[in-house]
Amino acid sequence: MKLAPLDYKRPASLQEAIAILAAHDGAALPLAGGQSLIPILAFRLAAPTMLVDLRGVPGLDGIAIGPGGVRLGAMVRWRDIEDEKRLAAAWPLLPAVISHIAHYQIRNRGTVGGSLAHADPAAELPGLAVTCDATIEIVGRDGPREIPASALFVGALSTSLAAGDLIVGMRLPPWRDGRRWAFEEFALRRGDFAIVGVAAYYDLDDAGRVVDAHIGAIGVSEYPIRLTAAEQALNGSPIDDATIAAAARAACAMVEPQDDIHASAAYRRALVGTLTERALARASA
């Protein structure tokens, strides 16, 4: 569990970082907080020839809160999100989700961009991004571009990023007043990767019917997914026990989880229903 030999660079600008990454054509990896990458290297599961440390790159940190929503720089750490107390009112689902990520030590270092690029199927931030229509800001050798979060994740630990692409930030759309929301996660221990997590929010129209339901799950697929069938079961209906139960059933029915050493597929499927039900019950309470 020692790192294999590799080179290390600490560029001072975004352009320099991208130039190095592009020049190595996939053999160089960006290093942000290192909370996933360093263990991967120690286990020798990946063998890059170079690490490009992003610590010296200016402009990648910072949380911006405005009428257009919330923007998180790629080097924003979990700890920064916890410390930004305005988020509790401005985008309450975000800090609620972040509170489930790992432990203090890891939250002091783990970053938004690192979590998105690592693309763990059970990680919280990718789940939030997919559930909430986040936009991912990328700078590559051809300049900046934006993609919806749903287009970032293509498999377990696998993204659509090309060599030389760097995630520089993530934007969450505006949060409506009166929005109902909840996040439910089941992990074997507090702070572990989720067995299953469900994030949900919806708005109510003047007649008290659900509009714009967003429900997503982590831990049930190779990457986070929207539980669209559950959303359809909610939209246009008043929120009551029957609607919630219907949404939970729909959520269960649409996931195709896999067995692993921690939990069976059947268990994960049942958990999706249970957590969807609990999230909606809590959101509506």
Binding site: P39, F43, R189, D192, I261
Partner: peptide, 26 residues
């Protein structure tokens, strides 16, 4: 929570404390 899981070919499937779940202080 603690279990050393093996597959049928004798490969151990637990290789870190992320899989072998010792109790935490909380």
């Amino acid at each position: 929570s603690e279990e050393l899981v093996y597959d049928e070919s004798g490969q151990i499937l637990v290789g870190s404390l992320a899989d072998y779940l010792v109790p935490l202080a909380t």
